[in-house]
């Protein structure tokens, strides 16, 4: 695979991952988490997402009402905690179903049509 092909592959992989990040973030916020903890949780689970992508995304999800954000000033360092809202929870379920359906379809396709 030459460098052009590698770049093409990288683009496709990025497209594939892009859609999963929202679902992963919603799933991770079922328990309240602040930005950096969320980043670590996602990284530990195998989602390589950059900090400068995650934080703006969290804010967008908050605006859409899928996450609720609260400042916790009890600790020495004030942190903004994100929690899944009811709406966010419903949407996460729908997205998860969609994801499962896609996986099933892809599995079927792979089985039916051995290359």
């Amino acid at each position: 695979m030459d460098t052009d092909d590698a770049a093409t592959l990288a683009t496709h992989e990025q497209e594939l991952r892009r859609g999963t990040i929202v679902l992963a973030s919603l799933a991770a916020c079922r328990t309240p988490r602040y930005g950096y903890a969320l980043l670590s949780t996602l990284a530990d689970a195998g989602f390589q997402i950059e900090a400068n992508t995650l934080y703006p995304l969290l804010r967008r999800l908050e605006k859409q009402g899928l996450l609720k954000a609260e400042w916790n000033t009890d600790e020495a360092r004030p942190r903004k905690y994100y929690t899944l809202t009811d709406l966010g929870s419903q949407m996460a379920d729908s997205l998860r179903d969609e994801w499962a359906a896609l996986t099933r379809s892809l599995t079927t396709l792979w089985k039916d049509d051995p290359a």
Binding site: Y34, G35, Y36, Y55
Partner: peptide
């Protein structure tokens, strides 16, 4: 209207990242 909030969040995040 979002400046103060984002400033606080990024500052906290940078501290967390540095601490890690």
């Amino acid at each position: 209207n979002s400046q103060a909030d984002i400033a606080r969040e990024i500052t906290a995040t940078l501290s967390d990242m540095a601490d890690a």
